[in-house]
Design a protein around this nucleic acid. Sequence first.
DNA 1: TCGATTTTGTGAACAGCTTCACCAACTCTT
DNA 2: AAGAGTTGGTGAAGCTGTTCACAAAATCGA
Lengths: 222, 222
Amino acid sequence: MTILRSPAGIPDATVARLPLYLRALDELAETGKNVCSSEHLATAAGVNSAIVRKDLSHLGSYGTRGVGYEVSFLSEQIGAVVGQAQPWHVVIVGAGHLGSALAAYQGFGPRGVKISAVVEADANLIGTRIDGIEIQSFAELPTVVAEESISMAVIATPPTAAQEAVDALVAAGVRSILNFAPTAVQVPAGVDIRQVDVATELQILGYHAHRRSVAGPEAVSS
Amino acid sequence: MTILRSPAGIPDATVARLPLYLRALDELAETGKNVCSSEHLATAAGVNSAIVRKDLSHLGSYGTRGVGYEVSFLSEQIGAVVGQAQPWHVVIVGAGHLGSALAAYQGFGPRGVKISAVVEADANLIGTRIDGIEIQSFAELPTVVAEESISMAVIATPPTAAQEAVDALVAAGVRSILNFAPTAVQVPAGVDIRQVDVATELQILGYHAHRRSVAGPEAVSS
DNA sequence: TCGATTTTGTGAACAGCTTCACCAACTCTT
DNA sequence: AAGAGTTGGTGAAGCTGTTCACAAAATCGA
């Protein structure tokens, strides 16, 4: 299930950092900087400068030696790579606490993401609105996807409903899915799925915290 | 900023998968299975079986050749490694849409996580309750951390407030932080921070989607 | 008991990612 | 114009993680 790198093959690890650079560049632009060094960008993105240079070299030679990178130009270039020119239209499946919070989140716009629809299985919620978006029936998913030109989805259902949601999305033609439900779901080849689980993240932190507490603080090095 | 692996050093990549195995084992236990093979566990966790065996071998020899792993026993062992015996007490910083949704989330209990407090800077929200938890003032953070024995925190503030929140948490003695605010924050050595950003995840999906659309479906291999 | 079968645990090969070190290219000062 | 200082690009080395392949250890049936 590897995606071939035809014209410009960018390593997965690099792709995962490109959005961080975009965020950092926006922050730098807001402070009035027109040009920044790899060192500066690295600090803003929370990585080291060698990796910034290596990552950006995969996109092309967009820096000037002795000077740095032009903030707005680099931002455009990275934006083009992640397909940010036109916003991605996203449907949220599940209008519970999390689905509603995501639907109301104001931070997607500048990141090239538009929440175009919310669908929900519970009939009691259908027709109500979150932040101006009307909640539609889960059964309407194929229609919604087609009418709103939706190409991405966020699963915010209970874990038991996640697989059904994914199947419906795939059947409707969606091939990029972000799953917040704490369960592994199966997808056919050609469909891209990413998993976010808060409890998992906390348990990873738990391992290190546990480690610190049994080994004592001296077991932590810089 | 590496944590030394003193008694039992488990690779980071393995640690990140242990919670997935815990989840999968719980699902298997619910279906009545007492024993499972690495193949079975791999399917349930969404990885391949070789990696399951390699991962579990880092914890010890808990399987039986020709048979598999005992579900409840393995679950206990992994639980012990991530320090799940006593639940971690967590404070949520920020009671906006996302903070509220996390506070109301019912899925933490079985994962060894207890939301013990919610703090918020906006005075209008202080004193109101989310799912039985009273929202307290951000200024009370040191007291709250001490009284509730809090050792972990989730940042659910706007990005501009994230660094301040982190600084206050670190000062209060919290050394495990999960940051939902879409900005990089600086922490001193010895503090563990993990980042979750929905927009970033969607942009990563965007790269692959963009790639599919320019290269055509034939650029995707299995 | 013995052979067939299943499945773990693991060394070894492989692949991918990060870090290092340094050259090349640019600016700035004098 | 030349030297000093700065910073990007990149090959090479080192490290971490994944996959492969198979011996060891267990079960089961006859």
